[in-house]
């Protein structure tokens, strides 16, 4: 096996992930998307991040 085969398998996995995501997620709507730059947008950053403290335990 060569590295190209591994890369192709990974690419297939990514395509599968995106296909599954497309099938089950809410449809995309670019008209409700945030502005290009967060800086200067006046909007609070809301994206998920690994450093974000979690909610309290239930």
């Amino acid at each position: 096996m060569i590295r190209r085969s591994v890369t192709l398998l990974v690419a297939l996995g990514v395509v599968g992930l995106l296909a599954l995501d497309h099938a089950q997620s809410q449809p995309l709507n670019p008209y409700t998307a945030p502005p290009l730059l967060a800086l200067g947008s006046g909007l609070a950053a809301t994206g998920g991040h690994c450093a974000a403290p979690p909610p309290p335990a239930q």
């Binding site: 967060a38 800086l39 947008s41 609070a44 950053a45 994206g47 991040h49 450093a51």
Partner: peptide
Amino acid sequence: VAGQPWGVVY
């Protein structure tokens, strides 16, 4: 652009 620093695992 994103309003948050680079992250990976989330």
